[in-house]
Design a protein around this nucleic acid. Structure first.
Length: 265
DNA sequence: CGCCAGGTGCTGA
DNA sequence: TCAGCACATGGC
């Protein structure tokens, strides 16, 4: 959901201000080359949300989660931004992750202005690769500085064909992403899902493990078992199920009571 | 002031 | 495979 006052950001390199009034989406930009099609693509408005939701609305918990967050869509974000952001997300809290990304942009991005808004573009792989690990540490990245440095260098040297991972199947995309230092199962799934249109990806973090207790109850929950179950249970849009569950357990479930069903997995 | 955070890599059974 | 541990840092 978008803030009522509007939201500044970037779509394919163009600075935009986005606002939603009811079902109407308004996008302002100074960049005349930005097309409505690009905007529509970013918000994934070409996907038929209703049929996706129908495909994952397979149990009481999902039904409740969907009802609480109707309209939630997975954006098509820039894969490089996703990769950097989720490397920074490891063993970290959201407030600090945002600060780290902002400091990265200020240090290695390009200043841009739009109306009263001023910000920095997201740094290119080359810009980050040129920085030393020590310089990245000074931005407060901690142990993630080395991961990011190695990954940026990999991109800058053309050893990670990130954009092309949209065209390969999900396991291949994930395997390729995990060649990067600091990219394990969870980060790879996030990049695949948010940046590469790999909707089978099912990122499992701490919150998702809590959500999955609904299905596993007292059975042993290994990441492998969770992944297998999610793929079987939710199908080719498992990633959408993950997003609705994630929002649900973080925002709602602690204050709601849902009928619990016994699942055998 | 301790606990915890949208995990990963490494090690040893 | 998989459990157990260190890892930097700051938010709350």
């Amino acid at each position: 959901m978008l803030p009522t006052g509007g939201y500044y950001g970037w779509i394919e390199g163009s600075t935009v201000k986005v606002r939603q009034d009811g079902s109407q989406l308004t996008v302002e930009s100074l960049d005349p080359t930005l097309t409505p099609e690009q905007v529509s693509r970013y918000f994934a408005l070409d996907l038929d949300l209703a049929s996706i939701l129908a495909s994952i609305d397979v149990d009481a918990q999902l039904h409740e989660a969907i009802g609480r967050h109707r309209g939630l869509r997975i954006l098509r974000q820039d894969p490089w931004e996703c990769l950097v952001s989720f490397i920074c997300s490891a063993y970290n809290n959201i407030t600090r992750i945002q600060g780290m990304i902002e400091r990265l942009a200020r240090a290695y991005g390009t200043a841009v202005g739009f109306n009263g808004f001023s910000g920095y573009t997201f740094p290119t792989p080359e810009a980050i690769a040129a920085a030393s690990e020590g310089e990245l540490r000074e931005l407060g990245l901690g142990f993630r500085a080395a991961y990011l440095q190695a990954t940026a260098r990999m991109m800058a040297e053309g050893r990670l064909p990130l954009e092309s991972l949209r065209q390969v199947n999900y396991p291949a995309a994930k395997t390729a992403l995990m060649q990067c230092e600091g990219v394990g199962d969870k980060v790879a799934d996030c990049v695949a899902l948010f940046g590469l249109e790999q909707y089978e990806a099912f990122p499992i973090d701490l919150w998702m493990e809590r959500a999955m207790r609904y299905y596993f109850r007292r059975q042993k929950m290994t990441p492998r078992r969770i992944h297998d179950f999610a793929a079987r249970h939710f199908g080719s849009y498992a990633g959408y199920a993950q997003q609705y569950l994630y929002q649900y357990v973080r925002n709602v479930r602690r204050t709601a009571s849902v009928q619990r069903l016994a699942y055998s997995v």
